[in-house]
Amino acid sequence: MSKIEWQLPQNEDRHFDRMIHHNSKLHAFVDGESLCGKYGISPNYYETTDVTEEEIMKNKELACKKCLSKLNVV
């Protein structure tokens, strides 16, 4: 499996004034696609986070439940 990047999903709906929704959870992205299948992202275009897998495991409430379940963590 490729390297997992934990990112906040970008909101591309032009009706919102923010690019990231204030209730967003971190999602696990592999090759530009979230493990939950809900989002696609270009890590070369958007700023990446420095969140580590260790931090996600300590604070699971910050991450998408579906992404965590795909990693067999939940």
Results as ranks from 00 to 15, higher is better:
M57T: 01
R18C: 14
K3M: 06
H15N: 15
Q7G: 01
K58Y: 00
G40C: 12
M1V: 02
W6S: 06
N72A: 14
A28H: 00
S34V: 00
A63W: 04
Q7D: 07
S24M: 02
L26W: 01
K38V: 07
S42H: 10
V73M: 13
E55L: 06
N44W: 08
P43K: 03
N72F: 13
I4L: 11
K25I: 03
N11G: 03
N59P: 01
P43G: 02
Q7V: 03
L8N: 10
L8W: 05
S69K: 14
K58A: 06
C64S: 11
Y39V: 00
H22C: 15
E54G: 00
L26V: 12
L8K: 06
R14Q: 09
G37F: 06
C36I: 04
E54V: 01
C67V: 14
D13H: 10
L68A: 08
H22L: 13
N11L: 10
L62A: 15
H27N: 06
K25G: 05
G37N: 11
K70S: 11
V30P: 01
N23V: 06
T48F: 04
G37T: 05
V73P: 04
I4R: 11
N11K: 11
D50I: 02
V74N: 15
H27F: 01
M19V: 09
T49W: 07
A28P: 03
S2K: 09
H21I: 08
F29K: 03
C36S: 00
C67H: 11
L35F: 02
L35G: 01
Y45N: 10
I20K: 12
A63V: 06
L62E: 11
A28M: 04
R18S: 12
L8G: 00
T48N: 15
K70Q: 12
D31G: 08
G32F: 01
V30A: 08
Y45V: 11
K70F: 09
T52S: 12
G37S: 12
